[in-house]
Write a protein that binds this DNA or RNA. Structure first.
Lengths: 184, 184
DNA sequence: CTATGTGAATTTATTCACAGCA
DNA sequence: TGCTGTGAATAAATTCACATAG
């Protein structure tokens, strides 16, 4: 909306877009303070800034990718990170044939260099390695100071409480569909 | 647990595993009926069957993949579908260089053949095409009788009410991490 | 003695309705 | 007049506590 030159948006606009009710939008915002203008709506720039702050997206974050196979390559090519002010700042693999190769704007590094992440102030990582190596990779990442992990392996990963893991299990997401599909 | 030869599991076991409370497990199950044995717990085979039924996972489902790029290839190689009794039964691409090529156990078909899905009784699809073609692909899938779509493009897809779409936005999932990470 | 299943109590979330500001 | 922000009312989910079954 901001890119389209719009200046303000009402709770009703937002509600329609998201498929919820207007009062729900207002009530939710109100828990974090009052940042709208009665009779007008919410200033779009200001609202975006507030929401980013609430979601802790107000500092630009760098993420490392571990595993540059098919899935990892797809992550590197993913066009959607910019909108959240994220960037993939490093890519690692353990395959000697890949190490040193360029992939987009990044050079693939040896997985044994993961410990440099702390020095480079990279605190997020994406795990796109085979299931067998997922837990090992996670352990190494935690030692390297990583505090948030996005895990694409279909397995449970154990980490210290200070670290947050979000696992994306493609099969499980596919399996959610039938529940919402009408019979026949 | 079943594969490990265990026969029964208590609400407390399950709760520990999932990180919730035992009464929550029992209450949730109770909404769908009573299928435990007091003093013993839940029969594992029976429970799995019940849960699959509740989640509409009791019939084996076939899914089609559209877009065999990096992400699509990763989906084909994904080892986790079996546990939900799912299989990828067809793969499509619009790139002439890919059509006809084998990819694992599947031969890549021309996207213009998507309409054969109805005849082949495939009612689920995974969209792994570039963002620009996502809506078009979805429209074609809906015409071909598909009722559930797993969308990997970072964009909103509009479909008739009878069709369920689940969108996985990798960037958004990554962006969820900072909220749960302690400061510094 | 152990573990389920469920009413009742409690807590939390949603919805309403409207006062008040631009 | 249009839209926000919020107390109050309603609805829903969670937690407790215990009767009951193996």
């Amino acid at each position: 909306m901001s890119e389209e030159g719009r200046k303000s948006v009402s709770s009703h606009n937002l509600a329609d877009f998201l498929g919820v009710n207007a009062w729900q939008i207002r009530k939710d915002f109100s828990y974090f303070g009052a940042f709208g203008t009665p009779g007008v709506g919410y200033n779009i720039e200001k609202l975006a800034k507030q929401v980013k702050k609430i979601l802790k997206l107000d500092v630009i974050k760098k993420a490392a990718l571990v595993g540059v196979g098919n899935l990892g390559s797809a992550v590197l090519a993913y066009p959607g990170f910019g909108i959240y002010d994220f960037s993939i700042a490093a890519a690692f693999d353990s395959d000697p044939k890949k190490i040193g190769r360029k992939k987009g704007y990044l050079t693939i590094e040896d997985s044994s260099k993961l410990r440099t992440l702390k020095r480079r102030r990279i605190s997020l990582a994406i795990i796109a390695v085979p299931r067998e190596s997922a837990q090992n990779t996670a352990d190494t990442l935690v030692k390297a100071g990583v505090r948030g992990i996005l895990n694409f392996s279909p397995c449970h990963i154990t980490v210290p409480k200070k670290v947050k893991v979000i696992t994306i299990d493609i099969a499980m997401d596919l399996a959610r569909l039938p529940y919402y599909m009408p019979a026949n």
